[in-house]
Write a protein that binds this DNA or RNA. Structure first.
Lengths: 215, 215, 215, 215
DNA sequence: TATGAATGAGCTTTCATTCAT
DNA sequence: AATGAATGAAAGCTCATTCAT
């Protein structure tokens, strides 16, 4: 006989794309959204382009028709966050509401964005070390800017007597922002409270304090 | 094209790896400390063992005499944080200070740990997706436990009338913890305030509110 | 010392990796065949994926498009052997030839496979310690099964009086199989005898003995 | 507080030597014996010097006081096999026993050595690709020599009429040797038969055949 | 004699990126 | 627009070997 030994075929990586195979039209937006979810779950460094492509039901190579490289996806995520967050805050600051009201609105806005649970927010606060070059600096600047707007509200309140003096506005600002940021770590849309309710509780605590009024 | 023949610069390459070349005795502790700094700067996934080894002035292989693998370094960082944070908080909760005082102490403790700016904290809040297996679950549990302790203080305060009713203690807890967590992102030991001072401002805001007393 | 500056021989290094550089289309089958040859020559543990890739004229990384990992190559080699060997033996056992004839056919079959000198056989008898997990057990079972078929032939022969009683069928089976296995170590297709001739000599010895008939 | 974060110590590789920790005096012989067992189980390439040292209850470095390198261990295993096998066979061949008796003794001898279960035998037939240099050639030669001695017995038998003519002595030799070699794969000292009994069955089959005498 | 510590080379594997089709 | 195939660089890890103590 001495026939040639047949090699058994095996399904290797090739056909493993059992993902969702949505087969929606591939767009930059779809890539960024999908990537944000995966980055939030597993981290930027541990998410491969293969992972993203699989969820989208395409092959890795296809992504490159829509994006330049992996970091660009991350850049787009950062931009998507800032683009939604900056403008409304600016309008609140520039409005002529009383300071206490401004602070409430600002907190509400920030929470709405954070609670949007958009995994993008999670990525935003976690993956900045993976940004490089001038873009990294740009993002840092715009983030600082955002913080300054909050700070201004506090400062203005203290100056006008709307808020108590005694604390450094910058520190207060960091406290309030930290409070809001953290929401992306625990908020669930299916939970008991709406973002607006949470904003009300936070504002209540921050403005009136936890202790009962003494008089 | 006939491009010019390049002269090999054998020497120059060697000198490239002169990093810090501390040449301290290599220990597990030294590895973990150095790694924490690098992880905080560049992220876990983007820090190679080569990076760590270079800073320590040894070769990659040497690290493996002291640690089992890269994830173990991360695990040790997480443990180092929890081991410092848990016990003091437990003591505060179990003490018989008045609630307002307990809250102050708890905030102070948390800020002290966070402000320690120990890059370990930055890593702690950022790299958990890189933990795997049962350890990941253990850490998540211990973190939940820590949060529960804070929650209990608020709850107790509301029950005893020390704190105003009206807000969900869990939400308040998330707010306060978020406020404190964030410190590791902006605090600098060389800055204007000590952790204790910051704790005082935060406690002031949280307990008395920003608005001036009305009476 | 002032040793002479070495001129970089950029070109020469590239040419070093010209191995065979077949540049046939890379397939799983090609990888497995090439690997079998190398494993047989140098052993599984001492053959690197670089070695295999070089012979195939591709880079290491390319292999991973077709196989999952190194062990999968080994698994495919084992399957390729068993897939050729099992079925024909089963048919012989289940046929209604007289026992002596069955034994002859079985020996002939086994020798044909072994003599195929396909390096796969050499690997098969040597590298099983490198198989892991359930697959290792599966292979061991299928090998045992194969042996049982041989044993049955002997047993049946003794029961029906076709073979002398007195020896343990299992021991006889081991003897005959060992005899055949070994062929892969010395057989050369270019040698004096065909597998069929060798099978005839072996069967002659095993059935009639070396001693001249006494009557 | 701001106390330094303590790094939790972990038991890494260091103290893991839970092996047998025999603590017998370390000798070259002990190393070779232990190594043979491990090589037989896991293969030469997959057994590290650490593995060997652990079983012996010493550290890797200690081995180097007794052996030059890993390959030397393998060389010593090969020598230990040949040194036991060669001399007795030579004596049998040179004796003036009748041929049939010589063959019986030779088979018995070979089986005794193989069955000695000495894992060394398993290593002997499996790891030769890891021998290098002149030693590899020396071993190959001595193995050939050993085979020639067997061949001579057959040849002599045919010439003197003690054995039937018709088969090539070399092929017969390969058959008988393969039969015996294989024993190291299945023989267990605790099994039903002694090496001598197995030798008797093999000799019976080989000299008288399985078929019943016709007269 | 033996240990602890380190080196350096090599290995398997992963992956962002490229490109012909 | 998308795929299949390949590259090449880097990563994590292992390990034989060396050597001061």
């Amino acid at each position: 006989m001495s026939q040639p030994i047949e090699i058994a075929q095996t399904e290797s990586k090739k056909r493993e794309k059992t993902g969702k195979a949505k087969r929606i039209r591939l767009t930059q937006k779809a890539i960024v959204t999908t990537a944000a979810t995966l980055f939030a779950e597993k981290g930027f460094g541990s998410t491969s382009l293969d992972d993203i492509a699989e969820v989208l039901g395409v092959t890795k190579g296809a992504l490159y028709y829509h994006i330049k490289n992996k970091e660009e996806i991350l850049r787009l995520i950062y931009l998507s966050v800032l683009n939604v967050a900056e403008e409304p805050l600016r309008r609140i600051v520039e409005s002529d509401l009383p300071c206490a009201e401004k602070l409430h609105k600002a907190i509400e806005h920030h929470i709405e964005v954070s609670a949007d649970k958009s995994p993008a927010i999670t990525v935003f606060y976690r993956e900045h070390p993976h940004l490089t070059g001038p873009f990294a600096r740009e993002i840092a600047l715009r983030q600082k800017d955002y913080e300054h707007h909050f700070e201004h509200i506090i400062e203005e309140g203290i100056t006008t007597g709307a808020f108590k003096a005694g604390s450094d506005p910058k520190i207060i600002m960091f406290g309030i922002l930290g409070m809001c940021h953290w929401i992306s770590q625990w908020y669930q849309p299916s939970g008991r409270y709406t973002p607006q309710q949470i904003a009300a509780m936070f504002t209540g605590m921050v403005e009136n304090g936890l202790l009962p009024s003494e008089c």
